[in-house]
Simulated scan of single mutants.
Amino acid sequence: MKTLKLLAVMVLVCTLSAFTITTEDKGYEVGDIATDFSLENIDGNMVSLSDYKDAKGFIVIFTCNTCPYAVAYEDRVEVLNKKYAAKGYPVIAIMPNNTNVKPGDNMEAMKARAKAKGFTFPYLMDKGQEVYPQYGATKTPHVYILEKTEKGNKVQYIGAIDDNYKDASLVKEKYAENALNALIEGRDVEVNKTRAIGCSIKV
């Protein structure tokens, strides 16, 4: 009888452990409060969300140099920053890849790419690959729109920038912009989660 009880306890512990791991691995859902971070920018400074005292929220985008999907969206990310930073929602770009696997995403390459493209937003490196798993990001690009609230930075949208990575002129649904416009106007975000299209994050 004692053996059976011990076995039952062990099974329960294993089940709970598996559940805990799964819960942690899934990342944020819409409505969750995102934890702040401190990551190195291409200018050598450390950047945190808390640095932006006057921001109303953030457009956090996990992206990189080497993924063709991310490259296809670079200009659109710049447009987002120019359009919405002044309205209180700046872009915070984060490079999540393991640079041993993707040396084209190392800090020097990030600096060169940002200079060549004229990025007006911070381009941070998730050097220890600790931030992207918290968010649950799986692709480059992968977008998380946060809104500052009394409880913290609330996740209001997760997914793709829009519905056509190939051609900006053929976009029919601007998911990120629609979400941002709703937040700025005090409305609920109607489509708050879409499927991110891009390259898998390299670990």
Score class of each variant (00 low, 15 high):
134 Q>M: 15
134 Q>A: 13
134 Q>R: 13
134 Q>N: 10
135 Y>M: 09
136 G>C: 14
136 G>L: 15
136 G>Q: 10
137 A>P: 05
137 A>W: 12
137 A>G: 11
137 A>D: 07
138 T>D: 14
138 T>A: 15
138 T>G: 09
138 T>E: 13
138 T>R: 15
139 K>W: 06
139 K>A: 12
139 K>R: 15
139 K>C: 03
140 T>Q: 13
140 T>D: 10
140 T>R: 14
140 T>E: 06
141 P>W: 15
141 P>G: 14
141 P>R: 14
142 H>D: 15
142 H>P: 14
143 V>L: 14
143 V>W: 12
143 V>A: 09
145 I>A: 06
145 I>D: 05
146 L>P: 01
146 L>E: 04
147 E>V: 07
148 K>W: 09
148 K>I: 08
149 T>E: 10
149 T>H: 11
152 G>W: 03
152 G>D: 07
153 N>F: 08
155 V>D: 04
155 V>S: 11
155 V>N: 08
155 V>P: 04
156 Q>C: 05
156 Q>N: 01
156 Q>E: 10
156 Q>P: 09
157 Y>G: 05
159 G>P: 03
160 A>K: 12
160 A>D: 12
161 I>L: 08
163 D>R: 09
164 N>Q: 13
164 N>G: 07
165 Y>D: 08
165 Y>K: 09
166 K>H: 02
166 K>W: 00
169 S>I: 02
169 S>F: 00
169 S>P: 01
170 L>Y: 00
172 K>I: 00
173 E>V: 14
175 Y>L: 12
176 A>Q: 03
176 A>P: 02
176 A>S: 08
177 E>C: 02
177 E>A: 06
177 E>F: 01
178 N>I: 00
179 A>H: 02
179 A>K: 00
179 A>R: 01
179 A>N: 00
180 L>Y: 05
181 N>K: 09
181 N>Y: 04
182 A>S: 05
183 L>A: 04
183 L>E: 02
183 L>V: 03
184 I>H: 04
184 I>K: 13
184 I>F: 11
184 I>L: 07
185 E>L: 07
185 E>K: 13
185 E>F: 03
187 R>W: 02
187 R>E: 07
188 D>V: 08
189 V>S: 03
190 E>K: 15
191 V>S: 10
191 V>N: 07
192 N>H: 11
192 N>I: 10
192 N>T: 09
193 K>W: 06
193 K>R: 14
194 T>Q: 11
195 R>L: 11
196 A>P: 09
197 I>V: 15
197 I>F: 12
198 G>Q: 04
198 G>I: 06
198 G>M: 11
199 C>Q: 08
199 C>H: 09
199 C>Y: 04
199 C>V: 05
200 S>P: 01
